[in-house]
Design a protein around this nucleic acid. Sequence first.
DNA 1: CGACGCCATGCACACGATTGCAGACATTCT
DNA 2: AGAATGTCTGCAATCGTGTGCATGGCGTCG
Lengths: 353, 353
Amino acid sequence: MVRLEDIARQAGVSHSTVSRALAGSPLISVETRDRIQKLAAESGYQVNQVARNLKVRSTSTIGLIVPEVSNPYYPKLVQHVADAVKAAGFSLQLHLSGSEQDAEAQCVASLREHRADGILLVTGERGIVAREQVLAMSASKTPVVLMGWVDGAEEFNLVTGDDAKGGYALGRHLVELGHRRIALLGKPPHRGPYDRLVGFRRALEEGGVPLSETLALEAASDEEVYVGVTKLLALDDPPTAIFAYQDSLAALTYKHLGDAGVSIPQDMTVVGFDDLDLATYLTPRLTTVGGHIEPLSAAFVDLLLVLVRGQAEESLPRQIVLTPQLIVRSSCTAPRQRPLTSSLSRPILDKRT
Amino acid sequence: MVRLEDIARQAGVSHSTVSRALAGSPLISVETRDRIQKLAAESGYQVNQVARNLKVRSTSTIGLIVPEVSNPYYPKLVQHVADAVKAAGFSLQLHLSGSEQDAEAQCVASLREHRADGILLVTGERGIVAREQVLAMSASKTPVVLMGWVDGAEEFNLVTGDDAKGGYALGRHLVELGHRRIALLGKPPHRGPYDRLVGFRRALEEGGVPLSETLALEAASDEEVYVGVTKLLALDDPPTAIFAYQDSLAALTYKHLGDAGVSIPQDMTVVGFDDLDLATYLTPRLTTVGGHIEPLSAAFVDLLLVLVRGQAEESLPRQIVLTPQLIVRSSCTAPRQRPLTSSLSRPILDKRT
DNA sequence: CGACGCCATGCACACGATTGCAGACATTCT
DNA sequence: AGAATGTCTGCAATCGTGTGCATGGCGTCG
């Protein structure tokens, strides 16, 4: 592979001159500069970034750590981040922290070894696990920005959506529609106060709607959603609405409700959270909370770039919180009224009061 | 940031000794090795991979170039690749080649500058655009493996699914169900012979089913699918089935058919291609072709790793073609019969003849 | 005509690691 | 006791660039 030295010999100059010529340094006369650039292009020269990075002590690389990318929530984020990072002239090193406990720390360590100029870390549902590593990175002047929920956020640079507000809007919407028996479906609240649920609860309390613990079901997989939905439908007094903590869970809920012959929203109101593309593909389109992935990822990258470029006037960690929006579509309606006149209606209707 | 030299001074040895100790070289006595490793751990030493890579002339990095990741087809691929690459002890550098014409070449160039040990290049719908760059890389002993459709495949290492076979299976399925007016919906065939369509056409020809050009509609965006579906429904003799070239288009088709009050599969059969998760979220579940992303990506990475490790006995480019499978779900049924005996049979049964 | 200044270029070192080779020291054998 | 052997460690070169500093040549001005 051709080096500066090779071009230098060919041009009859020193490698320093070639280096400067290719960098467009004003120290070099235009004639030699053009001559050398032409030579370099002809010989197919490509800078050895490894050597360059070593010398200039910076890599123009930023690392992105994401729990996974097969789950439909993250790809959009990755897309935005990748575009923004490239536009800023940096390369992207992608790491998937997966489900193993220490994988996140390993990702950070790897990026540290590779001397990434900055790190974007999206915490999964368990919050941040590589806490010490991140603090160590910050201590050694490598900026790290977190995204998602984290415990003890004030220590970190953080960008996050205000899930509590989103949850509140969602809860209020259901209350205003008149729902009084609302089921909850989702993963267990690993993240301490599970914000979107906290907001949701608050809305219900304000509306005087009780939240029955028997209607709060843990479910993460397809299988578990099936079990959960089946359990809810079998209740004497089934819910009139289901709040799935994530759109992907809502999609599974759709599927199993459909299989059970329950139609949305006539027989059951369903709402989600995230506003994936999925939400508009579903029939009926899903009412959800979102519309903030794009601004969120923009803020995410922007903050890091500011820090990487050293444009931060003060060094206090910053937290940026964006407010998501309630997106009303067609998966909600007022609950069906309980038939007052005993057994006139067919039992199948009773089930879904 | 702490270097080998720092630890060396602290331990009263030379940096060579530290290097060897950390690498676990048998040249170093166990006592000093342990002592040094302990010291390194305490001081939070992390190898400078940039310097290391320069010296050892290899980066343990492989590049992955993908058109985009917001489109639901690619994330699964990225996930598998990332996992496999990490398991093999390599880092992943992700590049999105996007829609601009020369972006792909820029990605390859960037990876070349960074001295990636190998490149995984997923060609978009326009096939390979960075042809010369890829050939140049191969010429300089950096293996490149392509995935997707490419023109003049024999020059490259290539992994691909046999779309023609998949299309054939799909076409045959529809023919056997009795469909004779079938609409086509998708992007224009950038890729020369658009294999999945070629196979599909062949199946129809074999079944003696004509393919009307008025039923072949170009559509890529939500908007265009809406226009297309509307046009089809407005025909005097509308189709009984729609083949969307991709699951994502099928999903949009679902949406617009639903809006128009057309129910699937009773009023219209819909099939897709790719088998995204999406396909099972839709109601009814989508009949499609797929089931090969996983083996495909496995073969993709495996082939590259073999080449990177130099285990290839001969240097001829290889092509690996995997056969996808027809996945029959609930979005297809036989076309509604034209009521022969006027109104005797109940329409709802006619629907499902 | 000499001195000074400027422009273009080369020299040499640094970045932080790996590694062949030589050498120091201890041990064992004759 | 001296030599041979083996074990461990240090020296120094190297990977390919970038860049401060010195230098050489040339033009200009006093």
